Structures are given as C-alpha cells and as structure tokens.
Simulated scan of single mutants.
Amino acid sequence: MRKIMAVTGYKSYELNVRSANDQRLTYIKYALKQRIIAFIENGGEWIITSGQLGIELWACEIVDELKQDYDIKYAIIPPFNNQDKKWAEADQQLYQRLIHTADYYALLYKDDYKGPGQFTAKNQWLIEKSDCCLILVDDEYPGSVSYFLEQAKPYSEVNDYLIDYITSFDLNEVINEIQPNDLNS
C-alpha cells in the first residue's frame, strides 16, 4: 500500500499561469484533486512537496481543503531557506499561509540558496521519502520537471516506486468532462 505521495510538476510560469483567476487553473486543480482523492481512497496518508510555485503549491492548497473531508496530511520540505524571496507578493502570501497550515514543515538545508545541488538533493529526498509520485508534465516539453524525472525514472526501475502522470491529454479530458457543466456547482 502506498501511503506517501510526492507531488510535483510545472511551475506556474512554465504554464504561463500568472493569476489565481486563470481559467486553466480550474482544470489543473480539478485533475490534481481527482488523483489526490484516488490516492487517499486507496490508503494514502501524506502528500509531500518542496513547496515550489505552481503544481506543488496548488497540490498543498487542495490537500488543505480536502482535510475537511479526508484523513490526509501534507508536508512542505523546501530545498533551502527563503525559497520564496524573489516571488511575486501573492505567491509569497500563498506560500507563507501553506507552510503555516502544513502538517509538517522543515528545511532540507538551513541556509539560503547555495547552488543547484540543493535541487538535486531535494528531488532525491522527495523520491526516497515517498512510495510514489504524481507529476503533471508533458513528455515533449518537460521543462524543469525533467530534473525530477531524471532521478525518479531510474529509481523506479530498481524500486517499487510508481510514477503517475497527469498529461496534456488528461487535462483535455478534464476540460471535456467539466466544461459543459456549471463549474460553480
């Protein structure tokens, strides 16, 4: 049984999502929520992320909401201190709110950013501390997610580690499923 799932994917700017009001965010969050609920209903207990912009923070937001109806927890383990230092103010506020409501929060490295090795270590930590991962990515254009995948794929070949994907095809399915319906109901 898989109890701990790492969630990652594109950063908001890689998806060109610049606002919490972006219509595409409705579909992305719906897809994430459905997969997270399925994970919970199959015995999942924890969602872990590094709290990066985009998919990771949105997943934490979703889990924070799902805690009202499900026994689920989330952890944010940033690769270094002050990772939100250069973010837009709205993103910083969301991050600060989520780290304060997280069930577990700890820095992987206590210092501020020192180099790209901190991201490599963060990916490895997330992979080794989870039973599976959920990644929103398009294989043709993986962006920064490619670094996580470069570590997760070889790990999954020698360990019982499931990599679950949300692809552009999955997002199109979500759009087709919910677009005809009233999104406010």
Rank of each mutant, 00 (worst) to 15 (best):
P79Y: 03
A6E: 08
E41L: 11
E173W: 05
M5S: 10
S12N: 15
E128D: 08
P180C: 06
A38F: 10
L171D: 03
Q93V: 12
M5Y: 09
I40W: 07
T120P: 00
I37Q: 10
G51W: 04
G54P: 00
G115Y: 14
L126A: 02
D91N: 05
S168E: 13
F169I: 13
L108H: 08
F39E: 07
I47D: 03
L149T: 02
W46M: 07
Q83L: 15
A38P: 00
N81Y: 12
I72R: 05
A20E: 14
V158R: 09
A152T: 02
G44R: 07
I77A: 07
V7L: 07
S185V: 14
S144Q: 14
Q52Y: 12
Q68K: 15
S50V: 03
R35I: 00
L108I: 08
Q52T: 05
P180W: 07
A59E: 03
N184D: 13
L15Y: 07
K33C: 05
N176V: 00
I178A: 03
R35W: 00
Y165L: 09
L149H: 01
L57G: 06
L25Y: 02
N123G: 12
T49I: 04
Y70V: 11
N159E: 03
G115L: 14
Y74P: 11
K67I: 05
Y74L: 10
K29L: 12
I163D: 01
K122M: 14
K73T: 02
Q92M: 12
P78A: 09
E41H: 07
I72H: 05
N21H: 13
L32N: 02
E140Y: 09
Y141R: 11
E56C: 06
L134R: 01
N42G: 08
G54C: 09
L183I: 15
D71N: 13
D160S: 12
Q124E: 15
A88E: 13
E89S: 12
P180K: 07
Y13N: 14
A38R: 14
T167W: 04
I135H: 04
G117Y: 14
N16I: 06
D103Y: 09
D64K: 14
C133K: 03
L32T: 05
N82D: 15
E89F: 11
L94T: 00
D182F: 13
L149W: 03
I135W: 01
P116A: 12
D64F: 10
A106D: 13
I135A: 04
I175T: 03
